[in-house]
Every structure is written in C-alpha cells, then in structure tokens.
Design a binder for these strands. Structure first.
Length: 578
DNA sequence: GCCGTTTTCGGCCCGACTGTTTTCAGTCG
C-alpha cells in the first residue's frame, strides 16, 4: 500500500477541522487542526521520513495527539477518528463551506433544521424559499447563498502570478491617477509573490475616499459589486477574480499595508508580540490596551520598530521563522534583481525558441546581463525540433560570430538542455556533451513515473559527470500539471554531494524549484541557478519571478551561481566535471 | 489541540460589512 502523501494527510486534517467546526466544537481545537494541516501542506520533506525519525512533535502545531494520528494514517492509511466524524457529519454538509456566504453555523443550521446534506439539496431549498424561514435568515441571505452556489460553479482557480500581477497593476494605476489618491500598493499574497494568487488586494491612502471607491466600483473590468463600505470595497471582475480595495488616511498606512500584506499567520504573530507590549494591533493602528490611546504608523518600518523588530521583506512573511530571525538580528540578506549577472537557460530558433542567438543576446544585454547560456533542446525530445550532434559546431560558429559583433558587452555561452530519458540516461553521449560550456539536464516526459523510478532517474542524471545544472527539477506546470512524485530530500542530498546546481525556473508557470524546496536545497548545501527558460526575447524579463521565488525561500546571492562572475562560473563547471 | 520570557493550565488576533436584528450573529479576510 503506498503511503499517504503530505497533501493527503493535510487534506484529512483540514476536513476534520471543518467537521469539528460544524459540530460546534471549541474554535481553538478547530484551529489546532487547521494549523497542523497548513504545517503539513507546506512541509518540504516527507512526513513519513519525519515520522521514522520520531520528530513529528518537533513540527510546529503538531503535539502528541496529532503525532499519533499522523502515525495511524501512515501505517494504516486510515484514521479512526476521521471515520467516526464522517459518520456523524455528512460530507455534503462539509462541502457547503466552500460556498461564499456559508460558514459552519449556517451549514449546521440547514443540516439540522432542514435535513439538507449536500450543495444540490441546499440549492433546491433556496430556490423554494425554505431557507428564509429559519431564525436569522431572510430573503436576502437566501439570495446571497444561491448566488454563492452559482459562483462556486464558475469559480476560477488561483491565478498564476503573471496573470494576477498585470491585472492588479492596471487597476492600481487607474486609482493612482485620481487626484484624491495619495499612495497605493498591491498587497496580499501578490506582494508576498506567492506562486499563485487568490484574491487581489489593493491599498490606497486618501483624505477623501468616496470618489476613489466610486471609481473603483465602476471600473470597466468590474462585473459585480460584492461589498461596499466606507473604507472597504470588494468586486468581482469579468474574469471571476475578486479584488478588494481598502482606503485609509496616510498616517495609518503602515498598519494598513502590514495587515493586508499578511500572511495571516505572520499577522497573528505580530499581534501576539504587540499584546506582550500591552498593545492591540489592527489595520488602523496600535491601541494601548489600558488607555485606549491610538498609536499611528505611517510606514511599515514604524510598525515593525514598535514591536522591536527590523522591517521584514514581504516575501518572508509566512511565519516560517522570520519573526525569530528578526528578533535575533539574523534575517537573511536576500538576493535582489541587481545581483543577477547571467541567465542560464534560454532557447533559440535552433530548437523551439522564437528568436536568433544574437536577438536573445541583445535583449539580455538591455536587461543588464553580463552573460547568457544558450540551452536549446537536444533532439531526443520529440515534441520540439532539437539540436542534433552535427548542429553543434554550426551553432558554435553562430555564437562566436554574435560574440564578435557584441564586442564583449555581453558574453554568449554555448550550453544544452539535454533530455533525461525515461531510463535516466542522457540524450547525448559524453563526447558530445564535452563540446558545450555548461550542460543543463531536464526531464520533459514520463513525469508521472512512480516515485522510486522517477527519483532514481533524476539521481542518475545528477551523478552524470558532465551535468552541471538540473532544469525545472520537479516538472510542474501551473495550473495544469502536478510535479513528478520525486523524493526531494534524496534528490537534493545527491545534488549537494555531486555539487550539481538545481534550477529555480523563473517562468511564472513553472517556478520550479518552488520556495520550499529552494530553501531546503540551500539547507542541504545545494547551489541554485535562477533562469528564465526564455523562448523569446520578451521572456528574458521574467527573471524577477524567479528572484521573488528565491527570496521566498530565504535565498541569498551567494547561493546562486548566476550571480557569480563568468570566470568563476566556468571554472566551477569545469572543475566539477570528473 | 497546541503552547510556554504569563510554562503543565489557561489562554488562543481583530475589525469591517451585511442582514436581520432593536443590540447582535455570522462571515470574511
């Protein structure tokens, strides 16, 4: 029997939390399960490995009770406690929680008073006007729930960064043009640069919020108004995306920005710190608990300083140790765009790229790169026209010519994205690979292989003496394709041992490694490369997505090989060949 | 159910908005 994955166990705990909440259990017990679920979902290692080491209770929000439940799940694949709850609370009632406007209280009410046990039955009851007969319910609430059910049917999943960011910036820019607007930012998970975005949060300061609210609610992108008050408005765009706007006067901007940048877990920690200093923290201000006197913060620095902390970069605000690091003065010196000297994966017309070598080089030059590595596909990847062995010398000649034309303003290196075949062997022989300056190896097919097989396959590539970098190691695509079932701790340990760099692919549909595994990689001593994998000159500017992902993984410039000068990079690639 | 510079018990974040209320409960972020 295959062991349950972290995601499956996290899902079970999240569902337990929902069921307990519907039952009316203590909210703190509910939150305990929910927090444990988040811990497990975010864990960059296999829970079974942690379990074998007997270290489950070392994990945040996992105590003795939950550790035993995890052990039961890992050994038997089932959880008695879960089965007992599921027999009590019908699964369809839990599903009702996904409906906007529905919470545990209402789900329990409809279930117990009307006997409704699923979203379908709920919809029918709402259409028949039966919900409004219940205490605390009315025609409007009923209509809202009906609307929520319809919204659920057309719900859009979380947006990839490259769709959310331009959409948010366009709205922000319109609001910034209004004379009443003083400052503005995109906040929320977008400011933290998570790999996918749920709702878009936009913050603005003004002394006259009403005209800004009005303009926002009437933007052409807006399909319907969800909520509108004095300081807050929520709308749904035609794309189905929800956008929230908050407006406060500028003297309160620090607390507002900090609050709505989140994450929720980071905010909880900040509030706890505030309470220890006798302060209550909200989006509006600090409030002295004893006197009710307000302390306003116009900047985020002021908020953090009031708590005795240095400012914490938004990408770190996930409650993954950043508060403790800030207290100790040991926050990482995060990598920045300015640290990036080169780009180590891109494609040209020699394979499936849209532009020539020199066009890519010139575009990279305008972005300030000092060197680039051209990494066309090897021909074995059937779906694209790849580089054949007898193309290599001709491509080298073209690269030499382009280097000459560019007079050393930027240096073009010849690399290859060699295919890791299903059996773990490479598409090119050693003597062919020896012709390239740096070899990048990637998997594009057979990503659904069983865990043991795909892990062994990637390890075989890592052990290959000519391979310096592994491209997009897990092979995920946002939002369509799940990553390969790799045992990443084994893979990363092997990469550390053989000094092979792992890529953070900066394409916003990949971001692979992601933040968790990038951090784990560096913990294990693995070097990283951040590359755009550009297939056109425009895509070379996607580098910032990769840098943001690295920052979320606590990565510093010293961990990333394309922050090095070219000579150091080439020496490393040469020396690590056996 | 977790957690601890309030440490083995007693806490556990806070405010806006909406609808159904006449002072508040539920949901959301």
């Amino acid at each position: 029997m295959p062991k349950l994955t972290n995601q499956e166990i996290a899902g079970i705990f999240a569902r337990v939390a929902d069921m307990l909440e519907i039952k009316g259990e203590s909210i703190h017990r509910v939150l305990a399960y929910r927090r444990a679920s988040e811990t497990i979902a975010e864990l960059p290692r296999d829970l079974s490995a942690v379990c074998e080491e007997n270290k489950l209770t070392d994990l945040p929000h996992i105590g003795q009770t939950l550790a035993e439940k995890i052990e039961e799940l890992l050994t038997t694949g089932e959880l008695t406690f879960y089965k007992r709850l599921a027999a009590e609370v019908p699964p369809g009632v839990v599903d009702m929680l996904a409906i906007s406007g529905m919470g545990p209280k209402r789900a329990a009410l409809f279930w117990k008073e009307l006997g409704l046990t699923g979203v379908g039955e709920l919809e029918k009851a709402a259409q028949e006007g039966r919900l409004r007969t219940l205490p605390g319910m009315g025609a409007k609430s009923e209509a809202k729930i009906l609307e929520g059910i319809q919204a659920l049917a057309r719900r859009t999943d979380r947006l990839p960064l490259d769709r959310a960011l331009p959409a948010a910036m366009q709205i922000l820019e319109r609001l910034m043009m209004l004379p009443e607007t003083l400052q503005g930012d995109v906040a929320g998970s977008l400011r933290r640069r998570r790999d996918t975005i749920g709702d878009i949060d936009i913050l603005v300061t003004s002394q006259m919020p009403a005209p800004i609210m009005e303009a926002f609610n009437n933007l052409p992108e807006v399909a319907r108004l969800l909520v509108s008050g004095d300081t807050k408005s929520s709308v749904e765009l035609h794309t189905g995306q929800q956008v929230d706007l908050r407006i406060l006067p500028p003297e309160r901007y620090g607390t507002l920005l900090s609050y709505f940048t989140g994450s929720k877990e980071h905010n909880v920690r900040l509030r706890e710190l505030a309470l220890k200093k006798g302060l209550s923290l909200s989006e509006n201000a600090f409030t002295v608990v004893e006197t009710a006197e307000e302390i306003l913060c116009a900047t985020e620095e002021a908020v953090y300083n009031r708590l005795g902390l240095p400012w914490i970069p938004p990408e770190l605000r996930e409650n993954r140790g950043e508060i403790e690091a800030a207290q100790e003065g040991s926050l990482p010196d995060l990598i920045e765009m300015g640290d990036i000297r080169g780009d180590l994966q891109m494609h040209t017309t020699w394979s499936d790229g849209k532009a020539s070598v020199i066009d890519m080089a010139q575009a990279a030059l305008t972005l300030g790169r000092e060197y680039i590595l051209i990494t066309d596909h090897s021909y074995g990847l059937g779906i694209v026209q790849g580089l054949k062995p007898d193309d290599i010398a001709r491509q080298r000649a073209e690269i030499d010519g382009a280097n000459e034309k560019l007079h050393g303003q930027i240096i073009i290196l010849q690399g290859i994205e060699v295919e890791i075949k299903a059996d773990g062997s490479l598409d090119f022989d050693d003597d062919i690979l020896a012709q390239f300056d740096i070899v990048l190896a990637s998997m594009h097919t057979g990503l659904q292989q069983p865990r043991e097989q795909v892990t062994a396959r990637l390890i075989q590539a890592i052990r290959h003496p000519r391979v310096s970098i592994i491209g997009h190691p897990r092979g995920r695509l946002i939002p369509d394709r799940e990553p390969a079932a790799l045992d990443m701790d084994v893979v990363l340990s092997e990469a550390a041992h053989h000094d092979v760099a792992m890529e953070i692919n900066a394409n916003p549909r990949r971001l692979d490694l992601n933040d968790h595994y990038a951090r784990r990689a560096v913990e294990l001593g693995v070097k990283l490369a951040i590359s755009t994998d550009a297939h056109s000159p425009e895509q070379l500017s996607m580098m910032h997505y990769g840098v943001s992902t690295a920052r979320r993984g606590w990565i510093e410039a010293k961990h990333v090989i394309n922050t090095w000068p070219r000579d150091k990079l080439l020496t490393w690639a040469k020396e690590r060949e056996i």
